[in-house]
Amino acid sequence: MTATPQLLQPNLVHHFYAGGARIAALRGLPPVERCPEEWVGATVSRADSPTVGLARTTDGALVRDLVEADPEGWVGAASDGAATLPGDTGILLKLLDAGQRLPVHVHPDRDFAARHLDCPYGKTEAWFVLDASGDAAVYLGWSTDVDPDELAERRDAQDGDWMLSRLNRIPVRPGDGFLVPAGTPHAIGEGVFVAEVQEPTDFSILLEWSITTSTREESHLGLGFDRAMEAVSITALDADDLARLTVHHDLADRAATPVPLLPEAGDPFFRLHLLSPDHGDAPQVPEGFAALVVLSGTGVLEGTTAVPVGGGQSWVVPAAFGPWRLVGDARVLVARPGERWRGSPVGRIVG
């Protein structure tokens, strides 16, 4: 049974949009043009490739293959009896450094994915802002209800300005956390560097494909827009909704316990915590799969064994490592699957 955390190779993903310098700087790598994402510990690939995005350990093993060969050791016993996908860990963690604005797009929820995409997961996601430059902002949900016929017309006309003008534009700063429920139109603005944790799929419905390398026919998940638009909310998010979807944490703070970085409404899907020991205290993490990014400093993961870690590294931690704690002065992001990640129903987050 796997019992030791595994150090990961860099796993930069080439994309249509600019960015990636801040990922390269964190990882101690030379900048690579248009590699604005790193998929940390990923056991799922990008939608257009069976291999792009899959993470490897430093000895060359695919994390997906390790998990598939020893699912109990990596993710624990399936106590609820629900079936999972081969190599499934319940989450996907990314670093995303937007050198330009991303398109307006939407992800389907679990119900839509089960009915139309033969998958138990949709793509609820969340962002934690690590850095932001210039007039950085994100766009999250409609600011007013939209008419579905007009939305379809504006989509076909590729009227991105109309879409942006009707989305909630939210200026960002480091330490901001946002939950993005499936079905919610959204975009990330230029200059925003985030850790993104999400359900483990690459399902996207592009409402604004003209600023990407995709075509119209590559923008509706192969379902046709009449069907795909059923996954798209046309209802506004009001101030109370946005308040439930946003939090803030000062990255400079240190704490004796893991600090939750995302709104509680995301807990059924995934968890993201900061470990930043305070005066010798050692934050402890429960047993289970985790993907880690060491933001700075050095430390030791103490579980069934002691594993040294350092700034710029990324790791995957198996369930068989048991409950573990971080000792030292390192600051570590820890992503874990949600409370009901093995496919149990999840209700609406807003609305």
Rank of each mutant, 00 (worst) to 15 (best):
F225P: 02
V192F: 04
T144W: 08
A231D: 03
L242H: 11
E208Y: 09
V232H: 01
N168D: 10
D147A: 13
R173G: 08
V138T: 10
A231Q: 03
G160M: 09
L251D: 05
E150W: 15
V138H: 13
D240R: 14
G224M: 12
A236E: 09
W127D: 07
L179T: 00
V180A: 01
D238C: 00
V129N: 03
E190H: 12
F203N: 06
L237Y: 05
V172L: 04
H220K: 06
I170R: 14
T246W: 02
T212D: 03
S165C: 07
A195I: 02
A231G: 06
S143P: 05
T235N: 03
D202W: 15
G183R: 11
D159F: 09
T144C: 11
T213D: 15
R216T: 04
P185Q: 01
V138F: 11
T213P: 02
G175R: 07
H249P: 00
Q198R: 08
G175L: 03
F203D: 06
A187Q: 08
R244I: 01
H248G: 02
H249D: 11
V146S: 04
P185I: 05
L223I: 09
E208G: 00
P148C: 04
H248F: 02
F225W: 15
D250W: 00
E208T: 07
G177F: 01
G177H: 07
L167M: 13
I205Q: 02
I205S: 03
D202V: 13
E230W: 07
E199K: 14
A187F: 03
P181Q: 05
L237W: 02
A231Y: 14
V129H: 01
H249G: 12
R154E: 05
L179E: 01
W209I: 08
L151G: 09
D240S: 13
R227D: 09
E230C: 06
R155F: 14
S133Q: 14
A157R: 14
L167R: 06
